[in-house]
Design a protein around this nucleic acid. Structure first.
Lengths: 337, 337
DNA sequence: CTGTTAGCGCCTTCAG
DNA sequence: CTGAAGGCGCTAACAG
């Protein structure tokens, strides 16, 4: 059987109240000698308080829920690591929930987490995470922060990547390297991040005096296979292009694959760029030039924000937007104009 | 405020015991009408039981702890997904803990998890996870299973990959493809999986009448950089070889990188093989021929075993060893003998 | 079929 | 400086 506060109290010949006081460092209310005696016994018996019992009265479990689409998506492990490290630093554990971006799974997990009395929730929802889920969260009065999703909900905090600025920088780089005809493989239309990046692409073009040709953009779904297909489509177009910007690395890898198959040399004939800088971007051939999202940092910031909310130090409605960083590797070749 | 069992009882004009009975589907002990009336009120008020309170009396939290080295290691996400899916299916949530294989971090997490009353633990420890940690686990009387670690502890269950058989198959394949001089990039000497795979390599050689030459094996640490370095070392050797078997995919990618740099063609001049089949294995150039560990399944099996233990349906000491599967892609070329 | 009573382990007034 | 008593929300004998 586990040692409880009662055992310690009996052993020390005091009441559990007194023991409770020393456990919780209530500076006043306990004599120095008593305190030390109790501390010694606690140490000897290896007593540590039971979080469940404590949680019941304090309504605090030191656990937060983290809801994401899928940990197998290479974009998430680093984020989760950032969250976990930060959580641990502040005395929290994380419960991981994979939803595959399914609305009903999200709903179920949110309920469960609330019932399990988590102290807070980090939520990377599906694109159309229905109002219902969000309202459930708001109603629960449990602090939460959106991660990697730009969501306008009154009083809700979020942290995400600046996709517009990021893709703008990427495409501008391509232009500076002498490219004029730049195709684009986008993410799904419903995805807010995909929309942002597409916007960055257009903007960069226009700002540099290059007309935007909608036919040069094809839509994928952020998966490798769609990049592969997308590249195939582009190749059939009656347009010339010297570079293809992809909305994420996975699709860029797919594009690379198609190019390898067709015997088209990268970057000699066509330059390719990615976005995210998942670790595999440095392992392809050629290595991918891409925009590095501050993934770990994204997780850290989200958790920090959540801690503030849980501590009541922030009242919500904070917005943190992280700028990605250009990583130049080998998939882009300079063109003479 | 959250609705509690008390609210429901009052509303229904019954005692909380009765409500508790219907919540827990105690078939007997409640009249049909009463039951329905209560059910209706529960539904209306949206009541769901508080797991913390329940946990306190039942000593059951429906949460399990999962301790791994690092979720950023591409080997783990799929495993974790298998664990989580299976856990969810059985009504459990998982608390994720990253230890970086640090002995003290593991220790801390184990303590914490015990204090938080998790119902079970899945443990992928460091190679030399000291006896102390394991004893702490055993003493706690919390069910646990080792994952991806072959550990001989009386009464402990584990599930892992058959590294000996796996690498044996890989190297045999190479031999069948006509290779006779096969170098090897191994994992760290302390790692049990690395030892197993190395053994499989030797055994395959010997069984096919090829002498084992220790100078043809270099030791890495499972990371890409060490594969890159290892390949460099091998190239300096005064020996000929037509193939290099790597103890995992990451190192194989590193080896590939060195070969690209030196302008040595793969698989034309040198064939390369990996192990694990992390998702990036299908994205390199050329695509890696490798042994696919049943990662998702590893997670599923571990969790299933844990559930059995928690349900008291198994008394421990189960051992599950999963066979990996050969995945032939493009990094090996047939040789004429 | 239903209610009463007693905790689970801990924290927190309120007395002494 | 310390202890007694009550309660967090729920389950589990034990009585009616």
């Amino acid at each position: 059987m586990r040692v409880t506060i009662k055992d310690i109290a009996k052993e020390a010949g005091v009441s559990i109240t007194t023991v409770s006081r020393v456990i919780n460092n209530k500076t006043e209310g306990v004599g120095e000698e008593t305190r030390e005696r109790i501390l010694k016994i606690i140490d000897e018996k290896g007593y540590t308080p039971n979080y469940i019992a404590r949680g019941l009265v304090l309504k605090k479990t030191q656990v937060v829920g983290v809801i994401i689409p899928d940990i197998m998506n290479p974009f998430f492990p680093e984020i989760i690591r950032g969250v976990e490290d930060t959580a641990a630093k502040h005395g929290y554990n994380i419960i991981l929930c994979n939803t595959d971006s399914k609305w009903d799974k999200e709903k179920e997990y949110i309920k469960l987490l609330i019932d399990k009395y988590v102290d807070g929730i980090i939520y990377t929802g599906s694109m159309q995470s229905d109002r219902e889920n969000i309202e459930e969260l708001m109603d629960s009065s449990i602090p939460f922060v959106f991660l990697d999703r730009f969501v306008h909900v009154d009083g809700a905090s979020y942290v995400c990547d600046d996709g517009v600025a990021g893709m703008y920088e990427m495409v501008s780089y391509l232009i500076e390297e002498g490219h004029r005809n730049i195709a684009y493989i986008s993410g799904a239309r419903e995805s807010s991040t995909a929309r942002d990046r597409l916007e960055g692409y257009k903007k960069a073009l226009i700002d540099h005096g290059i007309p935007f040709n909608p036919e040069l953009v094809v839509h994928g779904d952020y998966k490798m296979s769609s990049g592969k297909l997308g590249m195939g489509e582009l190749l059939k177009l009656p347009y010339q292009f010297t570079a293809v910007a992809c909305a994420n690395d996975l699709m860029a890898v797919g594009a690379l694959d198609t190019l390898h198959e067709k015997g088209i040399e990268v970057p000699k004939e066509i330059s390719i760029t990615g976005y995210d800088d998942i670790y595999l971007a440095g392992m392809t051939y050629p290595k991918l030039t891409t925009m590095a999202q501050a993934k770990y940092s994204l997780g850290v910031q989200a958790m920090k924000l959540l801690v503030e909310l849980m501590d009541g130090k922030s009242t919500g409605a904070e917005e943190i937007v992280l700028r990605p960083r250009l990583v130049v590797r080998d998939s882009v070749e300079r063109r003479r104009i």
